[in-house]
Nucleic acid binder design. Structure first.
Length: 269
DNA sequence: ATGGTAGCACGGCTA
């Protein structure tokens, strides 16, 4: 089973590019982020006519996530538990069953967190974007801790808005105090990994220079001035099934591309 | 320090 994650940066503007990628990469299951659409306005036909089941969790204008799958999606839940006042659409879960058994999938769009606003004592300003990011990551950790009790393959994948290590940025010094790279952000990501989840890409590729996002500005892609912030995390059951994991960087060179590219993993499932 | 680009939706926020 080929599973993938793609931050498409707007479904209305990305229909052609998404169709091209689906026809080319042929994932069995994919999670999408930044659909920037309500569920009602999501153009389902393009996806459904390619044989995919589709579950969306959208909102107007910003954010929004979705799961599409050739096989049926079961036990779908929307929203990250832990804060009923949070109205941002950034989390969706579903179970899919392959030839060899079932897989629980979390599709996520982790808050960017910029600008970083700090109080005089260095703690994030309450109500600010950075405080929201860290609080959201705590809720994600709590939810994944629950899911880790399932004795079955589990994946959490999406746009984490986290640069895990210096080798995951072309110019790490430029990101030092950014919400995507500063130490409290990376520590929170590390706490999630320490639940017993592995970064699938780093199980397959140790070297630098592999990125999943390049800014639209200043010819960042042409200079390969990118960052690796889209990730597929696997519990041990899923990691045992991993056969390949890659980033489709060439998608960024296509017509009217997203600023992110897809990452995918092949699981023997 | 600023501005550079893009999406949604048509004003200003988000990234």
């Amino acid at each position: 089973m080929k599973i993938a994650s793609f931050n498409i940066n707007g479904i209305k503007a990305r229909g052609a590019a998404l169709a091209r990628w689906l026809d080319d990469a042929k994932p069995d299951l994919a999670v999408l982020q930044e659909i920037k659409s309500t569920d009602e306005n999501f153009p389902r036909e393009m996806i459904e006519e390619r044989g995919y089941n589709l579950e969306t969790h959208g909102q107007k204008g910003f954010n929004g996530v979705a799961i599409l799958s050739k096989r049926p999606l079961e036990d779908v839940t929307r929203g990250l538990p832990g804060d009923d006042s949070d109205t941002q659409a950034r989390w969706i879960e579903a179970t899919v069953t392959g030839q060899q058994g079932a897989l629980r999938v979390c599709g996520l769009y982790l808050p960017n967190g910029n600008p970083v606003e700090l109080s005089e004592d260095g703690t994030p300003v309450a109500g600010g974007k950075y405080a929201y990011k860290l609080a959201w990551m705590e809720r994600m950790e709590a939810r994944l801790r629950e899911l880790m009790t399932l004795e079955m393959p589990l994946v959490a994948m999406g746009d984490f808005n986290i640069i895990p290590q210096p080798e995951d940025a072309a110019r790490p010094e430029a990101w030092r105090e950014d919400a995507l790279f500063r130490l409290p952000s990376r520590a929170a990501f590390r706490r999630v990994l320490n639940l017993g989840l592995a970064d699938a890409f780093r199980l397959r590729e140790a070297g630098p220079g592999h990125y999943s996002f390049w800014d639209y500005q200043a010819g960042a892609f042409e200079r390969n001035d990118g960052i690796r912030i889209d990730h597929i995390l696997l519990n041990a059951y899923a990691a045992d099934l991993l056969r390949d994991c890659r980033i489709d960087a060439e998608v960024r060179a296509g017509e009217k591309p997203s600023d992110h590219v897809p990452i995918w993993a092949e699981l023997e499932l």
